[in-house]
């Protein structure tokens, strides 16, 4: 289980770094609307990442022990993306919608970059 758990820890670390940078950007830079949008997207993206890690771990455990397998949470992740956009559309003065979309993609960027980096190291 080491490889998978190490990957989870690395991805979580990178997401926390990104969130910290976005909070700094929202507080310091003169573009709070864009950074708040990015922050909203990144927070829900982090939730998606956590859910995906947890569900796939449960899935692997169930497959290894011949237990019945439940879903992997695709619908929940789509619903959380919809929630982010609905919040952004409802409070358009505070959140930039395109920034929310880019923020929602941060987890996938983190997954791909982490995979490429760990592959090039080994």
């Amino acid at each position: 289980m080491e490889a998978y758990d190490n990957m989870i820890t690395r991805q979580r670390k990178w997401m926390f770094y990104l969130l910290a940078l976005l909070v700094l950007g929202a507080g310091i830079t003169p573009y709070p609307r864009i950074f708040l949008g990015l922050l909203l997207g990144a927070v829900l993206s982090f939730y998606n990442l956590w859910l995906m890690q947890r569900k796939i771990k449960q899935f692997g455990q169930a497959a290894a022990t011949n237990q019945p397998v439940r879903g992997i949470g695709t619908f929940t992740r789509m619903a959380s993306a919809a929630l982010a956009v609905l919040i952004a559309l409802r409070f358009e003065d505070y959140f930039h919608v395109i920034a929310v979309l880019i923020g929602l993609m941060t987890a996938y960027l983190v997954i791909m970059i982490d995979y490429l980096l760990s592959k090039s190291r080994n």
């Binding site: 289980m1 490889a3 990957m7 995906m52 290894a64 993609m105 996938y108 997954i111 791909m112």
Partner: peptide
């Protein structure tokens, strides 16, 4: 090989699910 297969599955699911979320 569960850990390695889970890692591959995780990356695959991540790549597949980016598009429907967009």
């Amino acid at each position: 090989l569960r850990s390695a297969l889970q890692t591959t599955m995780f990356i695959g699911v991540g790549l597949v699910e980016a598009m429907p979320i967009i």
